[in-house]
Nucleic acid binder design. Sequence first.
DNA 1: TTGATTGCAAAGCATTTGCATGCTA
DNA 2: TAGCATGCAAATGCTTTGCAATCAA
Lengths: 179, 179
Amino acid sequence: MVKEMVAVMGSKTEEFKEEKEIFLEHIQKSGLRRTAQRDLILEVFLRTEDHLSSEDLYWLVQKEDPNVGQTTVYRTLKLLTEAGLAREVRLGDGRTYYEHHFDHEHHDHMICTECGEVIEFFSAEIEELQDQMAEKFNFKPTHHSLRILGICGECQKLEREQSVASGAQPRVRVKTTLN
Amino acid sequence: MVKEMVAVMGSKTEEFKEEKEIFLEHIQKSGLRRTAQRDLILEVFLRTEDHLSSEDLYWLVQKEDPNVGQTTVYRTLKLLTEAGLAREVRLGDGRTYYEHHFDHEHHDHMICTECGEVIEFFSAEIEELQDQMAEKFNFKPTHHSLRILGICGECQKLEREQSVASGAQPRVRVKTTLN
DNA sequence: TTGATTGCAAAGCATTTGCATGCTA
DNA sequence: TAGCATGCAAATGCTTTGCAATCAA
């Protein structure tokens, strides 16, 4: 209870100072303008540690200001990406998700095709081998994305339990395709 | 010249025997029907060693039979994927590409964000590390896709040459996004 | 005041679906 | 003959764009 209040209050005031500064700096450098909508969208985005689609974020923002339009959310997420605060992620269902980028380590994703759970992981060895690979082809890498699709531990357990019978539905959250 | 003729004649007759058998088998097992369209689409697909979008393939097929519709190409590519002959690939521009899958080693892609060139590569070490990573998270992997975006050797060279001046346009083929 | 920003509606794209007609098994 | 396949047009889902009104600098 107390923790929640602090979190909410904090986020409305001195939390995410650094990110907000970066955003303002980017806006000014680009000759753009600070607006209430952009502030709110950034605020809600930073407050939510998750993979958010533009629509997800739109609904969260709606709750605090019903006058903000979808378009503005789309446009602001692009802006946040340019500013280095957000990173686009394709999880495989056709839409674009965004995750925090500033002050967050680079990482890759494992995506459960049963329940949609997304596991973040990082492997310095894999990164290293990728760079070696690129060098071998005289290729100068700028970004990369590694996605592993499969079944998470939880869903494997469920599968085992249901292996006898029952018409239970899978807990589908993200509809992923094979690639 | 002779080589080309042989290639063309071959492809119309005894070439790709194995793939065609697999296709027929899949069709029969699934209670589906063999049609002229499906035959032609498979033929053209097999003949083209490249990453093809549904539309790319549609135009190639059009040249040989203008009566084939886009929809059928879409549907047949799905079929080929199910049969294990094709593999869906997302290169990052929003559309779905297909590549040969049967008798082709698994591989990953480096994509040049300047010219769209796609380099295929394979690293057993990376694969191995991925499996280790998955195991660590009790995750049962089924597929994965690794994309490295960057600048290919050719485009690096061009960049160097143009580094002084000139308003030359990049040779954009595939419009890729960051992730 | 000026030009960036917003939100709505409309447009774009790639892909999928409904359905009457055509064809395979 | 039954019912899968086809191709057109229309629908879908996500995202972008045009534009008049609004607002920050």
